[in-house]
Design a protein around this nucleic acid. Structure first.
Length: 738
DNA sequence: CTCCTTTGTCTTTTT
DNA sequence: GACAAAGGAG
């Protein structure tokens, strides 16, 4: 069990009794320690697997850990709970949520559902959603829940503050609404489990006795509520092991509380602390760079990560002219790696924001190189999938108003807002759920002309409900799509888009089949639950050969021989919001994110950026990220194939909001359109000094001068009036001669 | 009631 | 530029 572990790691594995805090630096083998620890408990200490609870950050990590434990122990560790906080809580709530006033077949609401609920509440409370965004309320409510603040407490804390009072009223309504719909949001899963434990101490004790050995991975990213939950569970036996690295805390925005690392020793006073500081993953160069960057943070536990690995190659810095060319360069470097014997899945492109994947994707498609975008628009967030799931949720949980309202007119049944409002007010009058109101109202004939349409919808749902008891899940889903007319509608549309939607639905059916084949006791509720808790990263599979395109957040916990860190420009990474924030810890969080990104690399790290980039439809110019500048120059070299156009930096001054519309034209695509680019710039412009020209934004103006600047022309135009004299690049301004 | 056009917002990051 | 939400015409 402890072979091949270093002394510190051994110590961490063998210390099974009592509270233990493991501070594990990046690449220090913490996953290995946790799995070995669990295996050691089962095999050497003869602990029954059912007494073990291991919390991981993603389902993927849980699955992997389960496999590795099984491999080591050579037996089924099935009795052990290895899961995420959320799945763990769902499991508990499915058994006992009736004790806190919910049905055990509750729905789980995602961000979209939350927004729908809040939107309705705002309408009811006459809150202007232009001034107060639904998202803002959801954020406030979520942070409150992360800190275990109830609506009542929130109201009290709000005092006479106008804004907080508004939030309090929405929060109160929101909780009422969710309860009425028999639904939990993600935060509720944690909070309501805690509530259950508080209300029913004997249930808590049952779980305390069950989970005598608890471990929590990625401890730095737990929030207050999650910490409270594990503390409660571990209170009786005190065998709790948490593993984390404060330098990799990147979820502050989600309520993660670094204080948990400090608090741990307060809540568990005899906690032992073990530091894992030897890195087995990266070359010296990469590790030195990571250490240099993170040392600029003031808010951290000082630690020294070291490695016995070789020095390795220098980090490469690529600064391309625009995002397309950056992507081209990434692709060509990957081709070089392939020549060196690497596979595609040895390579990953990491970026700060999901929107950056597009430029890379285009380059990969052009190069005919297999790639996979991890994350982006989650499969389960697609319209067609959400629609299908809303049908299933309606069948499973008739109280789920959000789902019923979603599908009542999808596909089109000529049931409009008027009918929906009529049902809602009927429901309000009788204090019943939306669907019950629909059901009763139809029978009592209170909906007038719309009655027949509503009746056939009601009959459809009742029909499917009855069927759900009889047939397999797959048959049920098939029939939902068939009898609702949803599939027929898509087929009739017959567009490329509707075709992809059908394919996605087929994919969903595959997942249903897979679930039915693998689950011990497949149920509709079980399927819906599995589906609502998937993370982006869960779909990632290291076995297939493709390049991974992934956000830095999602890449946490992964490692690749060759890492491309793309879009390293000031304003993008770190984001300008963090740069301009009054709170200096925002920038530190960005730096930790950069640290996470750098430490994903084992052998080669390529950092790239683009001088010009389209952001929200506007082209911006940027400079090298401050984080790249924090890497000692000795460790980094300029990419040889860099194209450098010095003149362009002059335009930085025109950048932020003042020069908003300055480069309002389409960026040219990279090599595919290169010819076009050269013609446009090498060839003569069709206007000259003194000509009148037209600009999309500024209107008509007179050309004052044309200068050769870098590889483009700089044109100065006097537009007169409010815009005055503007300087711009010919290829971007798209001026038309009048 | 639906469809089409226009307008506005958005990009941090996710269980 | 992309997408959702709101507004207006049929």
């Amino acid at each position: 069990m402890i072979q091949g572990l270093n002394n510190k790691q051994k110590e961490a594995v063998l210390n099974t009794e009592g509270p233990l805090l493991i501070l594990a630096g990046a690449g220090s083998g913490k996953t290995r320690v946790i799995t070995n620890r669990i295996a050691y408990l089962i095999q050497d200490k003869h602990v029954d697997p059912k007494h073990i609870l291991a919390i991981t950050f993603t389902n993927k990590a849980a699955e992997e850990m389960r496999e590795r434990v099984q491999q080591q122990v050579g037996m089924d560790a099935g009795g052990a709970w290895i899961s995420t906080f959320h799945s763990c809580c769902v499991r508990i709530l499915r058994m006992y949520s009736h004790l806190i006033g919910y049905d055990n077949n509750f729905s789980i609401y995602d961000a979209d559902d939350q927004k729908t609920v809040v939107k309705n509440i705002c309408k009811k409370l006459e809150i202007d959603t232009k001034r107060f965004k639904e998202k803002w309320f959801i954020g406030q409510i979520s942070s409150a829940k992360d800190e275990l603040i109830s609506p009542e407490q929130f109201e009290m804390n709000a005092g006479s503050d106008y804004y907080l009072k508004k939030v309090a009223s929405v929060y109160t309504e929101y909780q009422k609404e969710l309860k009425k719909n028999n639904a939990f949001d993600f935060d509720d899963l944690i909070c309501k489990t805690i509530e259950l434990f508080k209300v029913e101490p004997e249930i808590l004790e049952r779980f305390q006795d069950r989970f005598r050995y608890i471990s929590v991975d990625e401890y730095q990213d737990t929030n207050t509520a999650q910490f409270k939950l594990v503390s409660m569970l571990a209170k009786k036996y005190q065998n709790i092991c948490v593993v984390g690295d404060d330098d990799q805390s990147i979820y502050k925005f989600r309520g993660a509380n670094i204080g948990n690392i400090l608090n741990f020793e307060k809540v568990f006073p005899d906690a032992k602390v073990i530091r894992l500081e030897q890195n087995y993953r990266s070359t010296k160069t990469i590790l030195d760079a990571a250490n240099a960057v993170i040392s600029n943070n003031t808010q951290r536990k000082e630690k020294i990560l070291w490695t016995e690995n070789e020095q390795g190659t220098k980090i490469r810095w690529v600064f391309a002219d625009n995002a397309a060319m950056e992507a081209e360069r990434v692709v060509s470097i990957i081709k070089d790696f392939l020549k060196d014997g690497y596979n595609l899945n040895d390579c990953a492109c990491l970026y700060r924001t999901n929107s950056q994947s597009r430029a890379l994707e285009e380059a990969f498609i052009r190069a005919n190189m297999p790639y996979k975008v991890v994350g982006g628009v989650n499969f389960y967030q697609r319209k067609e999938i959400k629609d299908a799931l809303a049908y299933l949720k309606t069948i499973d949980n008739g109280k789920d108003d959000v789902s019923v309202r979603r599908i009542i007119n999808t596909p089109k049944r000529n049931i409009g807002a008027a009918s929906v409002n009529a049902i809602q007010s009927f429901a309000n009058d009788r204090q019943i759920n939306f669907y019950s109101a629909l059901d009763m109202g139809v029978d009592e004939g209170v909906f007038g002309k719309a009655g027949e349409k509503l009746r056939s919808f009601r009959n459809l749902i009742e029909d499917l409900k009855a069927e759900a008891e009889e047939v397999s899940l797959k048959e049920l889903v098939d029939d939902v799509l068939l009898k609702s007319g949803y599939l027929a509608d898509l087929q009739a549309e017959n567009t490329v888009e509707s075709q992809t939607r059908i394919e996605n639905i087929e994919e969903l059916i595959n997942k249903v089949v897979l679930y039915e084949d693998t689950a011990a006791e497949p149920t509709l509720g079980g399927f819906l639950e599995e589906v609502s808790l998937v993370a982006d990263i869960d779909s990632w599979d290291s076995a297939d050969d493709y390049v991974s395109l992934i956000t830095v957040h999602s890449a946490k916990g992964l490692e690749f021989p060759n890492v491309f860190l793309c879009g390293m420009e000031d304003g993008l990474f770190p984001m300008s919001a963090a740069i301009n924030s009054e709170d200096p810890t925002d920038l530190e969080e960005e730096r930790r994110l950069a640290y996470v990104a750098i430490t994903r690399a084992k052998k080669n790290l390529i950092i790239s950026g683009a001088r010009w980039r389209m952001i929200q439809g506007e082209t911006m110019t940027s400079i090298k990220s401050r984080f790249v500048k924090e890497i000692p120059p000795l460790l980094i070299e300029e990419d040889r194939n860099n194209t450098f156009v010095p003149k362009r930096n002059e335009f930085e001054t025109t950048r932020p909001s003042a020069g908003k519309d300055f480069f309002s034209a389409k960026p040219y695509a990279a090599s595919a359109d290169k010819k076009q680019f050269e013609v446009k710039n090498g060839g003569a412009l069709d206007y000259a000094v003194g000509d009148m020209v037209h600009h999309m934004k500024f209107g008509d103006g007179c050309v004052l001068s044309i200068d050769q600047g870098g590889r483009d022309y700089e044109v100065t135009v006097d537009f007169g009036g409010e815009y005055g004299v503007k300087k711009m690049f010919a290829s971007f301004a798209k001026l038309k001669k009048l």
